[in-house]
């Protein structure tokens, strides 16, 4: 007799499974979870770590002193800082000054350690996500804009 009860139970469980898929099939329009990507942008939260950027203010000034803390903190060597020693016209002393803040996006794991390490909050993570490019060399970026200066409020 268990032969027939097996058949009965089998069919019952199969129908219960169909109940779930059937429910979603007939409510298909309401519960769509996919996003029509290029037209419809997904919602990105403000903390999302997309890439490292260096914010500049309206006078083309940034806060990076070239202290190399981020370079040391980076586990992958994706930050490279080229600096110069220039004579400060006011004091007459030679000081370290940033020349280029080079960021190799292709090596970055977006671990946020450089941002944690930065003493002046000069670099931040930006919630960008459309990062693909056609040429690998485009992923190497110079974060300080040409002609930009260090913000005078920032101390060494």
């Amino acid at each position: 007799m268990s032969y027939f009860s097996d058949i009965y139970n089998g069919i019952k469980t199969l129908l219960r499974g169909m109940q779930v898929t059937g429910k979603y099939f007939f409510n298909a329009r309401k519960e769509i979870i996919t996003v029509q990507y290029p037209e419809e942008k997904p919602h990105v939260f403000e903390r999302f770590r997309g890439e490292v950027v260096m914010p500049h203010d309206e006078n083309n000034m940034h806060k990076c002193t070239g202290c190399q803390s981020c370079e040391i903190a980076c586990p992958n060597g994706s930050i490279e800082i080229i600096w110069d020693r220039v004579v400060n016209p006011e004091t007459g002393k030679k000081v370290k000054q940033i020349d280029k803040h080079i960021y190799h996006f292709s090596m970055c794991t977006l671990c946020n350690l450089c941002i944690e390490a930065c003493p002046t909050n000069a670099i931040v993570m930006a919630p960008t996500y459309e990062s693909s490019v056609y040429d690998r060399s485009q992923l190497t970026k110079v974060l300080n804009k040409p002609g930009s200066k260090v913000h005078p409020d920032v101390k060494e």
Partner: peptide, 10 residues
Amino acid sequence: KVAAWIQLRL
């Protein structure tokens, strides 16, 4: 289409 609707897709 049927697969998509069952699977909450378009």
